[in-house]
Structure formats: structure tokens, C-alpha cells
């Protein structure tokens, strides 16, 4: 079965995908996605934004309520078998069999995809080695650490050499060391192997580090899409923040800043802090400081920050990422009650 003959350059092509659950919960409300083959695409959004539901539809686990999509050139509804052969999937909650050894997990996975004999064993060994699990390959998975289990998860997803790999929250719950190790692995996969990877994450940093293109998902919709740099560039430059010395008049400082001919925009005052944005923060600061000094307003400290994805998220959803996360966590707790 060679799905590569499908000839399409789009690994994932979704139009107007909708998922409405029984009871009317609209998890995904019309998503369009065009992901070129061989790239890493990040879906960024807080828990409950609809990322996992989207992945479930694209991996044939869940039937869409509306719209259509193809993965590796195959329709996710009419050509499920072909889609399943072409994709690897690492779900949000680990799918390893803890009663079996790491090696047994890999062998069974390969067999399910029709691999046999020498090819099967060689591939299992190769993946154990690649993910640093060669020494523990014959140990039961229940003795593995969280990081090791997660690596085995990714190895399982790669066992049959898929064309498209879905990574649903690959580093959630990992400690920082295991996380950066996982990032390294994902980078290698994308660069050496030309795999298409759809990565969902609720870590801004992760999307920034790994994804060539990304889409921000909020409440079942894609609110903005682009490269991390494009998205940041759409914000009006660097965030500049001036902490004034005690006893200074912040409003006077604000009017002085306004007189500087637009080097600083979106100027706001918060107590003794003056905030604004500048296309070139580092360049704007010296002149601004000189003007303030001339008016006898002293500055205690200055910070210039490059725009982050958090700022992007804030701009397009109207709330900070952390607030969205907390709201989602709260909603989940309420549901449990």
C-alpha cells in the first residue's frame, strides 16, 4: 500500500470541519486547514479549545458532523482504511500497554500494520535505539518513567513509517528536562525524515520552538494562522515599559512620550509604570529617556520585550492564555461535580 502515489502536496486539507456532540456542544465550528507535506504545523490553544476533537476527526476516530477533509490525499470519511495506514497518532493520554514490555508494544503495533519478520524486528530495534529505550526495551512498561512512556508512545506512532504524524500534546505532564529532550526528537523527525507533523499544544513556547506554521484555536475556531514570526510581527512591535522613579508625575511623562513623534504607540499609564509599543524598542528608548531627563523625570528601570505568542493570543482572543487555561480548568472541575 503506497499512499504516496496520491500525488498531493497537501498532507492535510480540511474545509469547514464541524463537530457537534449530542446535547449540542459544538467542539469544532468550521475549521479550514491546509498543511503542506513535510512541515511541522502547530495547533495552539488552551484546553477545551477543540484541538483534540479536530485531531480525532482527522485520524478517523470521530466522524465529522459537517465539512470534509483529506489526510495524505485520502478522504477521512470514505477512505478510512487508507488514511489509517498513512498516519501515525500519538494521543494525548498515553496508549501504551503497561502489562507488556516496550519491545512487545512495538512488535504488536507493527504487526497490526502488516509488518512481519526481519523488517518488523529491525524497525523495533531501530526505534528503541533512536528514543534511548534500547536498554529498557525488554522491561515491562509499568516500570518506565513518564518521559520514557511518552517516548515509547511516539515510537509506536512511528513504527509503520507513516507519512503524517499527529502529536496531541506530546509534552503535557513531562518535567522540563524530558520536555526539551522530546523537542529535540521532534525536531529531528521533521528535519531528517521529511515527515508531516501536526502538533497540538497548549504551551506557547512549544509551538514557537517547533512549528513552522501555526494556528491559534479558540472555542472551536481558528482565529489566526501564520508563521510564529509573522504572527508576532502583526503586533505593533516590541513592548516597552518604563518604571518611573518615586514621586514622578506619570501623566506628564505620558505627554512627553506622545510628543516624541510616534516612536511609542498605544501608550498607557499604570501607577508609576509607562507602557507602550514600538517598532524598534531598543532604538526608541535612548531618545525617550533623554526627553524625560530633560523634563526632570527620572526613570528607575526600562524593559524592552520582543512580542511573544502570548501577546498574539491576547490580541486575537481578547484574553490572556493563562486566563483561558484557568477558565478551562475551572469548567472541567465544574463538569466533574
Amino acid at each position: 500500500m503506497t499512499a504516496s502515489t496520491a500525488g498531493t502536496r497537501l498532507a492535510i486539507d480540511a474545509s469547514d470541519l464541524v463537530k457537534t456532540y449530542k446535547g449540542g456542544v459544538q467542539a469544532v465550528r468550521g475549521v479550514n486547514l491546509r498543511i503542506p507535506a513535510g512541515t511541522v504545523f502547530g495547533l495552539l490553544g488552551p484546553n477545551g479549545a477543540g484541538k483534540s476533537t479536530l485531531v480525532r476527526m482527522l485520524t478517523t476516530l470521530s466522524a465529522p458532523t459537517g465539512g470534509s477533509a483529506s489526510v495524505a490525499g485520502f478522504d477521512i470519511v470514505r477512505q478510512q482504511k487508507q488514511v489509517r495506514r498513512a498516519i501515525g497518532c500519538v494521543a494525548q493520554n498515553s496508549g501504551v500497554d503497561v502489562q507488556a514490555t516496550g519491545r512487545e508494544n512495538l512488535l504488536l503495533q507493527g504487526r497490526v500494520y502488516g509488518m512481519r519478520g526481519v523488517e518488523l524486528n529491525r524497525r523495533a530495534d531501530e526505534l528503541l535505539l533512536r528514543f534511548g529505550l534500547a536498554e529498557v526495551g525488554n522491561r515491562f512498561v509499568k516500570t518506565y518513567s513518564g518521559g520514557m512512556k511518552r517516548k515509547l508512545d511516539v515510537a509506536l506512532g512511528l513504527m509503520h513509517s507513516p507519512q503524517v504524524l499527529f502529536l496531541d500534546e506530546p509534552t503535557t505532564g513531562l518535567d522540563p528536562e524530558a520536555r526539551s529532550e522530546m523537542w529535540e526528537q521532534i525536531r529531528e523527525l521533521a528535519w531528517d525524515q521529511g515527515l508531516t507533523i501536526l502538533l497540538t499544544t497548549h504551551y506557547l513556547e512549544e509551538a514557537d520552538q517547533l512549528a513552522r506554521n501555526l494556528a491559534i484555536v479558540d472555542q472551536g475556531r481558528i482565529v489566526v494562522e501564520g508563521t510564529p514570526d509573522e504572527l508576532k510581527a502583526q503586533l505593533n512591535g516590541d513592548a516597552v515599559s518604563l518604571e518611573l522613579a518615586a514621586g514622578s508625575d506619570a501623566d506628564t511623562a505620558k505627554s512627553i512620550a506622545l510628543e516624541q513623534g510616534g516612536v511609542l504607540s498605544e501608550i498607557g499609564v499604570d501607577g508609576l509604570t509607562l507602557r507602550g509599543r514600538s517598532a524598534d524598542g531598543a532604538g526608541a528608548v535612548p531618545a525617550l529617556l533623554a526627553a524625560l531627563e530633560a523634563a526632570d523625570i527620572h526613570v528607575a528601570s526600562v524593559t524592552v520585550a520582543r512580542p511573544s505568542l502570548d501577546d498574539v493570543y491576547m490580541r486575537y482572543t481578547g484574553r490572556s492564555f493563562n486566563a483561558a487555561e484557568q477558565a478551562a480548568a475551572h469548567a472541567a472541575k465544574e463538569e466533574k461535580k
Binding site: T59, T60, L61, K81, R84, R85, I87, C89, A91, Q92, N93, S94, G95, V96, D97, V98, Q109, V112, Y113, L156
Partner: peptide
């Protein structure tokens, strides 16, 4: 544990 979903994503 997610094992069932892992198999359901495969052509098994």
C-alpha cells in the same frame, strides 16, 4: 489508558 483508541486509529 488509551490503548483502545490507539488500536482504533490503526487499520486493525
Amino acid at each position: 489508558r488509551g490503548v483502545l483508541d490507539r488500536f482504533l486509529v490503526s487499520p486493525v
